[in-house]
Amino acid sequence: MPFTLNVPDFSVHPAESVLLLGESGSGKSTLLSLICGTIMPSEGVVQVAGNDLSKLSASLLDQFRVEKIGIIFQQFNLLPFGSVLDNILLPLSFAPERRARVLKPKEAARKLCTDLGLPDNLLNMRASTLSVGQQQRVAVARAMIGEPSLLVADEPTSALDESTQITFLDLLFTQSQNNNTSLLMVSHDERLSKYFDRVVRMTEIAGFGKATI
């Protein structure tokens, strides 16, 4: 059923970590899609790192998105048949700027893994052989490689148990602070609020209704 989402004003500052709270069906994912430029607003502007997304052509947008934004999904983040290393390096093959920031991709991937507490020998294993927690950490490494300006995480902890959630969030924060990356995380879990610079509720920023078609 078609619906409308109205977001009058919402922004994330450089190096800020923001938790976007909302029930399922509250328009969180739609907002993320707008920020990532996979859908376009019917009115208004979406700016990422100072660029108006609506001014970019479709193929430039595809490239721009991967240059500026690292993305972590809820689960099934990795290509199961690829090696861990291939998965981490994947965004670099479509983003020349990010690629240029990484001098030695393999070394960078290995360092990220070490920082994220993944053993070295994991790099050449198939992603499908990893545990869910390890897969999520590989996803963080992939999102962080080449230092994008914004990290978008769509309920990344929902597949993890509580103790792993805390460790995972710690790693996420350490990484984004090291790289001066803004972090926008979407969740419905109120308990995560205390770890973030700012907490925004969907109900505070967005009007939501059914379209009259």
């Binding site: 990532c36 996979t38 479709a58 193929s59 595809d62 490239q63 998105r65 991967v66 240059e67 993305i71 999904f73 099934f76 983040n77 990795l78 290509l79 994947l90 965004p91 093959s93 479509f94 983003a95 992939r142």
Partner: peptide, 16 residues
Amino acid sequence: RREMAIFRAMGARPRV
């Protein structure tokens, strides 16, 4: 679809 979505999120254009 998940595989293709990952490729897309990693910057692969639809024509890839």
